[in-house]
């Protein structure tokens, strides 16, 4: 592939993003208090909020980058870095905490370190109550919930996903 087409692809890609940001902003144009909803739409689409997209949005809405970043960094839900290929969410709600969620988290950290750390394949995070306290402690792997777990179950969960 020559340099020319690669650059061309890149420019197309940037233009694509611009168009998309414009569309998203347009969708919310007449609605009051739209910034957070647009950020949600961006994160839904890209998995996180890339700097370039935030900058496009800043131009589109006429809001300074500082204000956009103030909002993004205040809310835990918004991510500034791309998520790993697999997301593991350990529930740290009260019910799960009481039933040993810390042990699950420690075991997962241990396992991930042992095999080279968070290499972009797994993204480990803790969340608050995922709504299945009846099955505490619970872990969500790529949107699928596993309940009534003990630390020994963690190796199996990672193994099932690794390399997929």
């Amino acid at each position: 592939m020559s340099m020319g087409t690669e650059l061309g692809n890149l420019l197309d890609w940037v233009e694509g993003i611009r168009r998309r940001v414009r569309e998203l902003a347009k969708e919310w144009e007449d609605q009051e208090g739209n910034l957070i909803m647009i950020l949600h739409a961006i994160q839904n689409e890209f998995g996180y909020i890339p700097r370039g997209v935030a900058s496009e949005l800043s131009k589109e809405l006429g809001i300074s980058m500082a204000r956009i970043y103030e909002v993004i960094t205040f809310y835990h839900y918004f991510r500034l870095t791309p998520p790993g290929r697999h997301t593991i969410q350990v529930c740290m709600g009260t019910a799960c905490y009481l039933k040993g969620a810390m042990d699950l988290q420690n075991e997962l950290e241990r396992q991930l370190k042992a095999t080279g750390g968070r290499d972009g394949e797994f993204h480990l995070e803790s969340v608050r109550c995922i709504g299945c306290c009846g099955m505490a402690p619970a872990v969500v792997v790529d949107g699928e919930t596993h309940g009534r777990l003990c630390p020994n179950d963690m190796a199996g969960i990672l193994k099932e996903k690794r390399g997929k």
Partner: peptide
Amino acid sequence: QVRLGAGAFVCGEETALIASIEGRRG
């Protein structure tokens, strides 16, 4: 209409909630 929170407990507090709907930090 529906507005989404974004993972901030303090936004349950009335004035912070209002700030959040207005598109500001809560």
